[in-house]
Nucleic acid binder design. Sequence first.
DNA 1: TCTACTGCCACGTTTGAACGGA
DNA 2: ATCCGTTCAAACGTGGCAGTAG
Length: 545
Amino acid sequence: MLQEKASAVTDECMSRVQTSVETDHLPDRPPLGPSSASALPSSNEPEQKIESIKVVLHERELWKKFHEAGTEMIITKAGRRMFPSYKVKVTGMNPKTKYILLSDIVPADDHRYKFCDNKWMVAGKAEPAMPGRLYVHPDSPATGAHWMRQLVSFQKLKLTNNHLDPFGHIILNSMHKYQPRLHIVKADENNAFGSKNTAYCTHVFHETAFISVTSYQNHKITQLKIENNPFAKGFRGSEEGDLRVSRLQGKEFPVISKNMVRQRLISSHSHLAGKLGAGVLTGHPQVLSSYQYDTGVPMSNADAQDSIANHFTQSRDPGLLYHCFKHRDNARHLELGCKRPYLDSPSVGSEEHYFRPTPSYESSLLSRPYCSEAIASREACMYGSMDAESGSGAGDSDDLANSPSVNCNMWATMQPYPRYSVEGVPYQPFTAHFTNAAAVTPMVPHHTPSMVSRPQADLGVYNSSSVQLPIIPPSSSSSSSCSPAVPGSRERSGHPSLYHKKPGSPLRPHRDFSAYPTQGTISIRDPSYQYQVGLSSAGTHWTES
DNA sequence: TCTACTGCCACGTTTGAACGGA
DNA sequence: ATCCGTTCAAACGTGGCAGTAG
């Protein structure tokens, strides 16, 4: 039996809820690699500092393209994957040390948005944050060698707007802006979660921020998704195919898709509207500054609106050929079909879009095809909360330690992604709360076996409590913070190991260890965000360039 | 009336079982 | 008996769209 413990302790000033993570068994997973079989680090080995870990966002250029257009992510009741998917390349780990990689998505600000006049605008105050959930990479814990061997993919992470989601998907509010984050936690038997040696770091890539939607608002985003996501190939107009069809039909031009028709409608409309709304759009927002939280200064609502207007401005790139040919007849679309924002919005586009040769912009997109790495096919554990819904108290610590249950994590308090302020202004760390995602469903009572069957069941057993992880202000388009070994970190509340896996565990009875850390938790709207580094005054920052 | 949301649809990709040959 | 490659169907992931609720 392999046991691992890890813990994180928060800043002295913050609500501190110790997290313990214990892996009782490695689950039935493929071998982690040559160095993984007995990967427990030797105490004699020189310990590689967690500060030295470097994380590079995969397909950053693609992310940037989306970012420039104002990334939108569909959220559905059943859960929807992110695209582009969140993949990173990690280097600088100690090959033999075990790490837990997990991701969460936090509010980027406290606004609600609407898509108006082809741009995202602040539409009011954000709704209360959903219970935070963590997505722990299915390979976790694994050795540094394993993580560094290949891309680390969070592509199976799913987003939902179902507040009672039983599947452990990350719960978001529609029309809100979010920021994904990556956390790396050392998880060694000799370096347990919650021990004084706990070390972790947080990485934020600003280009991965997005606005959650239930249907796409910005047509450019739709096009980017269709062009880059293989699962959306059905909506792609294969130039060859369509040209072939066109030729067969004796046409000299490609078949016009619904999207093209829509574009045409928009474009036509915008010829009129554009005269009224001139100046609203920018034609080529190729270079956009980062989001408001990059500015370093908290923004007023008006500022935010400006920012959104500037950064999420819909750009119907006049150079972009919307060449999506539809497989379905949609003459009706000519009459209906267009979302009002499209119709209403002025656009720089014109009819020449539709027959213009594909510009390099598009080519560049197509030259970066989505490729799925041969990464963990196993589902990751989506850690979620039931506390928010149930209000149940914390589970017994010992039970946590000993329970074979599947447990998932949640952030007890959903922290908005900080509007990064000048360095030195504290950022409030968010709190991760490991609990049972399946138990989120009302039908699954606390501390009782859950019969909920879910695909993540094969992940094994996770007992968990809570984690607080800090983030720090970015110095560039992405940022990271880390907390190396934390002397004096608190073994608080005696939460024993909560991260608990057993091999071959099918869906196991779940428990909710909802030590919902309200105590000492700072409001997510607290402007006094504490950057760094809950665990140690000696915390180190580094920035991903 | 408008907007956000939901459920269903068709299509393409992914995955893994089944099969056959070496 | 094992390994490898191919085939095929089911499962899954997409965006579109009509209908619905507030």
